[in-house]
Structures are given as C-alpha cells and as structure tokens.
Design a protein around this nucleic acid. Sequence first.
DNA 1: TAACAAGTTGACCGCGCGGTCCGTTTCGCG
DNA 2: CGCGAAACGGACCGCGCGGTCAACTTGTTA
Lengths: 191, 191
Amino acid sequence: MPLRADAARNRESLLAAAITEFAEQGMDAPIAAIARRAGLGKGTVFRHFPTKDDLVGAIVLDRIARLTAAGERLSTAADAGAALLEFMTTAAQERERLDLSVLQGDLGAEVAAAQTRMSAVIDALVDRAREQGAVRADITGADVMLLMCVPNDVVKHLPSGAPDLWRRYLAILFDGLRPEGAHPLPVPPPS
Amino acid sequence: MPLRADAARNRESLLAAAITEFAEQGMDAPIAAIARRAGLGKGTVFRHFPTKDDLVGAIVLDRIARLTAAGERLSTAADAGAALLEFMTTAAQERERLDLSVLQGDLGAEVAAAQTRMSAVIDALVDRAREQGAVRADITGADVMLLMCVPNDVVKHLPSGAPDLWRRYLAILFDGLRPEGAHPLPVPPPS
DNA sequence: TAACAAGTTGACCGCGCGGTCCGTTTCGCG
DNA sequence: CGCGAAACGGACCGCGCGGTCAACTTGTTA
C-alpha cells in the first residue's frame, strides 16, 4: 500500500528540514529541531524514520544516488579530466553539506551498496582521466573518494562569510592530482 | 602558591589520558572515561579543569604552542619549501589527533592569542617559500592554516588500518601548492 | 457522508552526560 | 610526628536527548 498523500508530503518536508538543519547545526542537531522546522510533531519524525540513523541514512542514500547519477552522466564526456573536475565540483557544491564522517557509523546495507556503486562510477571516471593523461598515474578512485569531500570540510570550520571559498581549495587539490610537476607518493593507496 | 607535587603529576596524567581518549573516541568522549583512563576520580578532572572546554583548551593550547615552536625553528632553514613541507608534516603527524573543528567554539582569549601567534609564524614560513619559488604565488598563510589539518581529517573517517596514509594525501596536497603546473585560482584567499 | 485505517501529536520515559559537593585522604612543613 | 590545608573521590543533581505511546485528527474509499 502506497503512502497517503499528506504523509508523502510530510516525508519530503522532513527530509528537507533535516538536510538544512544538519547543514546548519551539525550532525547532532536534535530531532525536535527538525520537527519544529518542518512544522510537525516530533512523533511524526519517528513514524517516518524509526531511528535517527534511519533519517541520516535516507539523506545519505539520496545524496549518494544523485552523485552516482552525475558521475554516470559525466563518464562519457570527451574530456575526462574536465569531467572528473566537474564531478568533484558537484560533490562539493551540494547545498546539503553533510560531513561524510557520518559514513563511519553503519547506516545499513542499502547505503553500503549505494556506496559500492558510486565507488565503481568514480573508478571509471578516474581511470579514463588517467588514460587521457589528465590526472597523474599514481592516484586511484579510492583517493578521489576520500578527497572529494575535503573542500567542504576545510571551509566548514570557518565562521563562514565566503560561501564560495571551497572552490579555491578544490582548485588547489585538483592541481595536486594533475600529472604536471607531480612528485612520487610515499604511501600506496588504500584498498 | 605552586601546585602540590601529586596534583601536578595528576594534571599531566589527565592531559595525557584526555589526549588519547579524544583521539580514539572523538571529541565527545565522556569526562568519566578520561578520569578512568587516568586512574582518577571524576571530581579530580573538574578540579583541574572546571569545564570540559577548559580541558580541551589546555590541550589545544599545548598543541598550538608545539606547532608554533616547530614553525619558528624551521623559519630560518635554507630551503624554505622543504621547511614548509616539514612543518605541515609535523602538524599532521602529531599523535594527538584532535580535529581542529574544535576551534570553531570559543576556547577563550588565551587560545585565540596563541592562534594568532601561530598564524604569524605560518605567514612567515609561506612568504619565504613563495619568495624562493617553492610554492605558487597565489597562496597565503591562511590557506596553509586551513589545509594543514586536511591529511589527518581525510583519513580519520576510515576504519583505519593504514596509519601512514595521511602522508599520501599530504604529498598530493603539497603538490597542489607547488608552482609547477599551477592553474589560476577562482576565489581569493580568506582574510 | 459514514466509517475505518492511516497518520499525527506532544506528554512522557530512561539514560548518559557535564558539573557539584562534601566527607575522606594525602601532602608538606614546622 | 602532627596538624592544617590542599587534593581526591564518587554519590548526586539537572538537563537534554532519542525514542515510545495512547488519544486524537484526517485522508480515503465505497
């Protein structure tokens, strides 16, 4: 049986409220604040997401799905280096900034599967870029996976002010991924 | 009146316990756990540090002081580029990993002052490196200040396993700071 | 429009945390 | 020694959180 109409609407409100609340207040924002922001009762949140982790999981799942779709769309671009850069830009500019530190906790098999799928897409993106000589030979998809959230994380500590500053650090980081002037890396990539 | 002998000893035990506990369990490790690890009572912690923030502040202060000293020592090295790299290495390899996100909360004027002093040292380091052409012309001390904690942060999300992986990402990041093959940056540096 | 299921609500519970307090222990000095 | 002050310990308090529940409201469907 599908969701009732108002319930579906409320579910979306809740997700939106949670996304902005988490972005503004950090990942330990109280559920009550999310409910208030959505103009709903606290109990309603738990009806849709039995656990706070379920709520976070739903958000993360959506984010990963979007990113995966973007990656797939870019995986056939002519300029693989530009495609990779655009992918990382997309990853960084998602308004719904939620620190990926959240992925350390187990969000369930669904999230893990989505993550694996995204990982494959990133691998493809990086492989093509490497073949075209757009990025250095010694980096892998796993590297990009770890590094793509850096620009946001760097800026998050700031009291803010410059909302576009992450672009600066993405540019610096990406220059570090280019083959020109690359120095050998002291440690092999992770699994 | 100076501290009593056992009190001074206990203070050190507490700081050490807090550092490792925070590193292992994250910044919201309970005070009780720190006390237990130090083999002391919870009340003793609050006698030395009236507030959890005071404890964190003491640790951060010490960390900043160490880093500042290391920076000063390096500020006269012949090869300014190598000096900057070594500084960032020192910053990253501190066993006492505590995410600098903690600096967003106000830890008091003392910490702020120490931070300013460190900022000046980093500025000097970066300026010299730039003059020697070891780093690109368009980065500043503020950039390095923001970026130097990246290698640790990147690896922290991992279930661990490779304790030296941060070196890999420091190398990539530093390659992004070099002048060779640098692309223009889209956004000016922060204040 | 009647009637039932699906959805909503906010008061409520338990827990774990930061922080307090006072009886007890320990240091250090004459 | 012995004594006073400094330091310690852990039971205790209040608060804010995640999560529950039973009474109430509302969409849906025939």
